[in-house]
Amino acid sequence: MTEYQRIDDKMYLNYISFHNSFEVRKPPKFALDSTLVNMPGGYYLLHFNNPVDSLTAINAKNYDILYQQERFKIEKIEVFRDSVRLFGDAEFRKALNNTRGETTALINKRRTNEVENMFELGIENVRDVYGNLVNEPDIHEYQQFREFFTQRIKPNSRAPFDGQFMDKEKPLFEDQPMVKPKDYREYWMNTPLQEKIN
């Protein structure tokens, strides 16, 4: 919203108001902290930052386990306070056993990135005991209001011939090549509710 006032035969900005709404995305309230693959046991061990809701955590449709880009079925799920064990089927255990030596060799050669890329996990629709959905961003909406009031209009002012101009990329009074006016204390900054100075 804007408002103008007339001085002589020209209109000058008197007031302008801005209203913005924006979102701030914070980390999820419920998230997967870490994943461990137990090759001899044939299971994925998932650790969460909050206690898990057992009804959603026990549902095999909420997970995908992959090994070397191949998807395997989940045979059994064990739910603990803040962790879940996903046991792969016989085919999964067989695949792990067949490549256990290869995986161990990669680890010994410190090629852990290649090992990590062999294992993938998909997870959705799992909640914690507080009802938070796993990996769902915590989004907060905010409203911002800004107002500018023209306190004084100087229609006959001229730019200084030998002075520097302000840098518009910097805050008003931060290392600006300018001198504050003598009547600076009469100007309001940030709020029109300034205390009276006696």
Rank of each mutant, 00 (worst) to 15 (best):
R185Y: 12
E124S: 12
F161E: 09
F80T: 05
I74M: 03
D53S: 12
G88M: 02
L106Y: 12
Q143T: 15
M166Q: 08
F18H: 08
E169Y: 11
G41L: 10
Y187S: 09
L133M: 12
N135L: 03
L32T: 04
Q164Y: 11
G101I: 04
K10G: 03
N20I: 11
R25Q: 01
Y184T: 07
Y44A: 04
L121G: 05
K109F: 10
L13H: 06
Y43K: 06
Y184M: 12
V79M: 03
Y142T: 04
F80L: 09
G41Q: 11
D183F: 04
D89Q: 08
V52Y: 06
K76C: 00
Q164L: 13
N190K: 13
N14Q: 06
K196E: 13
V179H: 10
T112V: 13
P171I: 11
P137H: 04
G131I: 07
K182Q: 11
I139L: 01
D162C: 02
Q176H: 06
F18G: 05
Y12N: 08
P177L: 13
Y44K: 05
T103C: 08
M189D: 03
D162L: 14
N62R: 01
R85A: 08
K180Q: 14
Y12F: 15
T2L: 09
F22L: 09
K168F: 11
M1D: 05
G88C: 01
N117H: 12
L96K: 09
S34K: 15
K196P: 04
Q151I: 01
F161Q: 05
V134H: 02
P155N: 10
N135R: 00
A60K: 15
V84L: 01
N113T: 15
E141I: 00
F148G: 05
V179N: 08
Q69E: 14
P192S: 14
L66P: 01
Y187D: 05
N117R: 15
D64I: 08
D53V: 04
I107M: 15
R110T: 13
N62L: 00
Q176P: 01
P27A: 03
F80N: 09
R127E: 07
P171Y: 14
N50C: 11
P192V: 14
I65N: 05
T99D: 13
K109P: 06
K94F: 13
P137Q: 02
R127I: 00
R185F: 12
L193M: 10
N38I: 04
G101E: 09
N156F: 12
E78R: 11
P28N: 05
L32E: 02
N62G: 00
K196G: 05
E78T: 10
K180M: 15
L172D: 07
P40L: 11
P171D: 14
F173M: 13
G122Y: 09
L36G: 00
I139E: 01
M166V: 08
F92P: 00
L45V: 09
T191H: 07
F92E: 03
P28R: 04
R185C: 08
L32A: 03
E23T: 04
V129G: 00
R146D: 07
K10D: 12
S157M: 09
N98C: 06
E141A: 02
G88E: 00
E3I: 00
V126R: 02
E186D: 13
Y187M: 11
D183W: 01
L46K: 05
G163V: 02
N98E: 15
N97S: 15
A90G: 01
R81H: 06
R25L: 02
D183E: 08
D64E: 07
